[in-house]
């Protein structure tokens, strides 16, 4: 077998894992801290992508700089959605949360379809997209590499925040014991608001990256919702630290199959979901 191809597949997988982890970690925050099953999470990602696209088209802003506009914008969007809807279903059954967030997802996705149509949108003429490095026959694009580094920094930054800052400690306290946290004087609702807005922000940053890496359409969001859910579930609900490993595992497997199996690129999704299914089923039957 061609080892270069194998290494190439591994490298691509690792690089893709960054973005997966970034999007999933936001969802894990929503589930773990707030306890909300957010099926609109991928739409934040999509909105981030299309905001970056529009900022480029209208104002010629390079996506690197639009990160600094998209991030606060998505934080605000998350805050608005939390305040207007999510906070009313915190104690509702899981199914109701699912339906509410499905509804929000449908609204966002169809607004985007109305504005941008269903065709893929490319941010044209970015000079750095073509830059890549060759190391012993393995090529590494600058953009995937940068997106990996930025994602990793953000994910690790989130871990640090949860572990070390007062806000992070508040989030962990709330996640562990909702009533108890209220008793010790934490403003639970404020913590939830920030956690949800932060989760939207992280997804939005991921969206800016996908706008550069690929040419997304407005339906990209739901696909990422599913992937993020799957990664969160494989890591284990509430296990925010496990996300990085789950994302790595899944992304590398996906990439290996896409490269090594003939016709593998279209099998990508199947592999992804087969892994998740196998992991869940195996885990459920092992613990008695």
């Amino acid at each position: 077998m061609d080892t270069t191809l194998l290494v190439q597949a591994l490298v691509s997988g690792v690089l893709a894992a960054g973005l997966y982890a970034l999007v999933s970690v936001g969802l894990a925050l929503a589930i773990g801290v707030i306890g909300i099953v957010n099926f609109a999470h991928g739409e934040f990602f999509m909105v981030g992508a299309f905001l970056a696209y529009q900022l480029f088209v209208t104002f010629g802003i390079d996506p690197v700089w639009s990160l600094f506009i998209v991030a606060p914008a998505l934080f605000a969007l998350g805050a608005i959605i939390y305040t207007s809807t999510i906070r009313f279903v915190l104690k509702a059954p899981e199914l109701n949360q699912m339906l509410l967030t499905f509804g929000i997802g449908i609204i966002l996705q169809n607004l985007a379809l109305l504005i941008w149509g269903g065709d893929p949108r490319t941010i044209a003429g970015i000079t750095y997209r073509g830059i890549g490095y060759q190391i012993g026959g393995v090529s590494i694009g600058l953009v995937p590499l940068a997106s990996f580094v930025v994602s990793l920094v953000l994910v690790l930054g989130l871990y640090w925040m949860l572990a070390r800052t007062p806000l992070g400690r508040a989030m962990r306290a709330v996640a562990q014991n909702r009533t108890g946290a209220a008793l010790v004087g934490l403003e639970v609702n404020r913590v939830y608001l920030v956690a949800f807005a932060l989760s939207a922000l992280l997804a939005g940053i991921g969206g800016v990256m996908i706008a550069v890496i690929q040419s997304p359409t407005p339906v990209v969001g739901f696909a990422f919702t599913l992937k993020a859910f799957a990664i969160v579930v494989v890591a284990g609900l509430g296990n925010i630290r496990g996300i990085l490993f789950a994302a790595l595992f899944v992304a590398v497997a996906e990439s290996l199959v896409a490269t090594l199996v003939p016709n593998g690129d279209t099998l990508r999704n199947a592999v992804f979901f087969a892994i998740i299914f196998a992991v869940l089923i195996r885990r459920s039957w092992r613990t008695a």
């Binding site: 589930i31 899981e94 859910f229 279209t266 979901f273 869940l280």
Partner: peptide
């Protein structure tokens, strides 16, 4: 039978995954 031990969101994601796998199998 495979998902008998799974609950809630874990059950939901497992069934979703199985559906996607079946789709891909039919596709291929």
């Amino acid at each position: 039978a495979a998902t008998l031990r799974l609950r809630g969101i874990y059950f939901a994601i497992a069934t979703l995954s199985a559906a996607e796998v079946l789709k891909a199998v039919v596709h291929h």
